[in-house]
């Protein structure tokens, strides 16, 4: 050990509290904190008014600075939220989940996740093997075909599907409409429902698919529903119910909404813009 005789500047650490630990001794989950309750600005002119400003927006306000840079706590939180979003894109829906939901596993023409991200055209088309499976295992001319696709977020599927599907089935049961086997498509883009429409001749196809994750939540799912979808049809023929996640439209409510929508499509024999126009006319 070296002991210097030179004059030393006193080294003063900035006043920053350590993160608390939970009852197991683990450092608390920083993503569980509500950012709107957190103010890191040093000596704001009006502390209570700052909290008031923060209540008006989910934007990351009042996160403070150290010189021209961010505080450590806010950097870690941003990176944690981004990491959850990234992992949700790259993680696959577990096979055990697909099995436990008794879904029929299929795959689009994408080789892997990277091919999925760069080739939307591949994600809109089933492999020849998957086409054969659809033909042999799914009924033709069903009233409704419900399908699930991973899309851009695996966590959207695992967080919502187990509740949404029973809710849709309950809603349709009121109208005596039954739902058959549900396919699960890996590396799925929205347009694949058009091919499913052509293969099964379903009256209505409803595809539940994971949305591109944002930092607010990686669990957002959408339902793309279309009346007699067919490859090459205009996008305007789809009706979308989006923002299905625990902090948005709750799975049970979304399921009921989807069932109502399906019944409307069957009644009016239309979907998307055409359905909207018919409902306005009424």
């Amino acid at each position: 050990m070296i002991i210097t005789n030179k004059h030393l500047t006193e080294l003063v650490p900035p006043m920053i509290h350590k993160l608390p630990v939970d009852q197991t001794g683990a450092i608390i989950d920083i993503t569980a904190e509500n950012l709107q309750d957190k103010l890191l600005v040093t000596n704001p002119r009006n502390r209570s008014a700052y909290f008031g400003l923060k209540q008006t927006t989910p934007a990351r306000l009042g996160m403070g600075r150290v010189g021209t840079r961010y505080r450590t706590a806010s950097v870690l939180r941003l990176r944690a939220d981004h990491a959850a979003a990234q992992d949700s894109v790259w993680q696959e829906v577990p096979e055990t989940f697909v099995r436990s939901m008794n879904m029929l596993p299929l795959q689009s023409s994408c080789r892997d996740e990277s091919d999925y991200l760069t080739r939307p055209d591949h994600g809109r088309k089933l492999t020849p093997a998957a086409v054969a499976t659809v033909k042999s295992q799914l009924p033709t001319h069903p009233t409704v075909l419900i399908a699930v696709g991973d899309g851009l977020s695996s966590r959207a599927i695992t967080a919502n599907v187990a509740q949404v599907i029973p809710a849709i089935k309950r809603g349709l049961a009121h109208e005596a409409i039954s739902v058959g086997k549900i396919p699960f498509i890996k590396y799925c883009r929205v347009g694949i429902e058009d091919q499913l429409g052509d293969l099964t001749h379903a009256d209505v196809v409803c595809l539940l698919i994971g949305e591109r994750p944002g930092l607010v939540t990686p669990k957002s799912m959408s339902a793309y529903v279309a009346y007699r979808p067919t490859v090459g049809m205009p996008e305007a023929r789809r009706t979308v119910i989006s923002n299905i996640h625990p902090g948005g439209i709750h799975a049970n409510d979304a399921g009921a909404d989807i069932a109502t929508l399906i019944v409307e499509m069957l009644t009016h024999q239309a979907s998307g813009l055409a359905l909207k126009q018919q409902l306005v006319v009424k």
Binding site: A59, R60, M63, R65, G67, T68, L78, H82, G214, L215
Partner: peptide, 25 residues
């Protein structure tokens, strides 16, 4: 300049207020 680079409407990340401040300095 977006609050901590996180655009809560467009759902993407850009540059925050701090980036301009740091670069100017």
């Amino acid at each position: 300049g977006v609050p901590q680079a996180d655009d809560v409407m467009l759902n993407y990340q850009s540059t925050g207020y701090q980036e301009t401040a740091a670069i100017r300095q």
